Amino acid sequence: MKNICTKFLNGGTPSTQVSNYWNGSIPWITGADIVEQKVVYRRLISETAVKESSTNIIPKGNLLLVTRTGVGKVAIAPFDVAISQDLTGIILDEKIVCPQFIFYYFDGNEKALQQLNQGTSINGITRDVLQKLKIPLPPLPEQKAIAYILGLMDTAINKNNLLIEKKEQRKKWLMQMLLTGKKRLKGFEKTKWKIQSLENFIKPVSREIEKPDKPYLGIGIRSHGRGTFLKQDELPEKNTMETFYVVRKDDLIVNITFAWEQAIAIVKPEDDGALASHRFPTFTFIEKKGCVDFFRFFILQRRMKHMLQLISPGGAGRNRVMSKSDFIKLEFYIPEFGEQTAIAQILQSADKEIQLLKSKTEKLREEKKGLMQVLLTGKKRLNQDLQD
């Protein structure tokens, strides 16, 4: 590295006790501000802070490498930016090397950089280690061509991710409108939504079994409507509970201890047959009354979380326990089965669009990774036409 760099610049943190060091006009970043190879600054410092502290300004277009606390993250400075001690600014000799090429080389070798960590209390890459780092370099025109090709891949990935964001925003709007009755579907406009209790759509179910004598899969529910997860219990004999309950695909399940944090979900196909404790009351949907696919979305609403909090009295954490009897009596504006089904189909279609786009992003990332593996190592060379 020392042969292709004109300067290595360390960073520092201006004293937070000096008020005129902060809220200036110069972006100042730590390692945490390098997010997905981009700079996302949160704080500004003054010119006085730069003069009177150990921070340094890295000019636009130069390399930012995290060498402490999050080692291996890299970005190209999109503007002049001051850095903390987490980072090293690398000023490259552009007569010899293309900064974007080195950026992609570091980006593709983050794990290798992490292995260069040294130190006990605070790990990091030392200046000496960084200077001795060897990088395979093709001629400058080929470096630029490689950087251009990988940049095209990044552009395609970013465009696709922007489309995902738009689709997710649209889905959020659809949920807000369709699940509250603010927007009605064609053919259902004349049917009024009624305030109805959940017992009109679901009924309790109890599939009680004795404690297994062999390892089993238990089910858990993540808070904030983030679905279920499975956990393997290898030592059931150490479990103090003597009775368990079987859950089935499409059951509605609630964790009474964390219901106030919206720990509620629909059981996924891969969860079928898992075991739950008495803290996880389970319900099935009444045929032609409750559409399971509608309720997959309905239970994610803020209104649901609010209502679960109301029936979970007590203090914070495990002291707040949901009343099982009150849960099924909760009342909401809910459409009839036909409209539930129609709403579910629209929201499922939105989900499918998003998943297809996410799959496309993953495919593009894999293609980019494959290109990096061959282009940045010299396994595949570019012909002269591409370099020009």
Rank of each mutant, 00 (worst) to 15 (best):
V321Y: 04
A265H: 07
R303K: 14
L308A: 05
I286H: 13
S312C: 05
K289T: 01
R318T: 04
V292M: 11
K324D: 07
R296G: 05
Q262G: 03
F285Q: 13
M304F: 11
V267P: 05
V292R: 15
R318N: 12
R303E: 13
I299E: 10
K268T: 09
K305E: 03
G273V: 03
L300I: 05
H278S: 13
R320F: 02
G315T: 13
M304W: 14
K289N: 14
V267I: 15
F295H: 12
H278P: 00
G317F: 07
E336F: 14
P313H: 09
H306C: 02
D272Y: 14
N319H: 13
R302C: 00
C291N: 15
F327C: 02
E331C: 08
C291Y: 14
R318H: 09
T257D: 04
H278I: 03
H278K: 11
V292C: 12
G290P: 04
D293T: 09
K324V: 07
E261Y: 06
I299K: 11
P335A: 11
Q309T: 01
I266R: 13
F258W: 13
M304L: 04
Q262W: 07
D326L: 12
E331D: 04
H278C: 01
M304E: 03
F327T: 01
H306N: 13
M307V: 01
Q309A: 02
M307A: 13
Q301A: 05
F327M: 07
F298S: 08
A265Q: 09
I266H: 11
I311N: 08
K324M: 09
A274G: 07
D271E: 06
K288I: 00
K288P: 00
A276D: 00
V267F: 10
A263N: 07
A316W: 07
T257I: 15
R279A: 06
F297M: 04
K305P: 01
S323M: 06
D326H: 12
S277L: 03
D326W: 04
R296W: 06
M322I: 01
T282L: 13
F332P: 00
Q262C: 07
K329W: 02
I299A: 08
W260H: 14
S277E: 04
K329R: 15
Q301C: 03
I334E: 08
S312G: 04
T282I: 12
Q301W: 06
D272F: 12
T282P: 06
M322F: 05
I334K: 09
F297N: 11
G273S: 08
R318P: 00
G315S: 15
G273W: 10
V321H: 12
L275S: 04
F295A: 09
I264Y: 08
P313G: 06
A265Y: 06
R302I: 00
Y333H: 12
F297T: 03
I266K: 13
N319G: 06
R318S: 10
H278F: 06
I286T: 07
G315P: 00
C291E: 15
H306S: 12
D271T: 03
H306V: 03
A316Q: 14
G290N: 07
F295I: 05
P281F: 10
D326P: 00
A274F: 11
A259S: 05
P281W: 10
Q301S: 13
P313S: 06
I334Y: 07
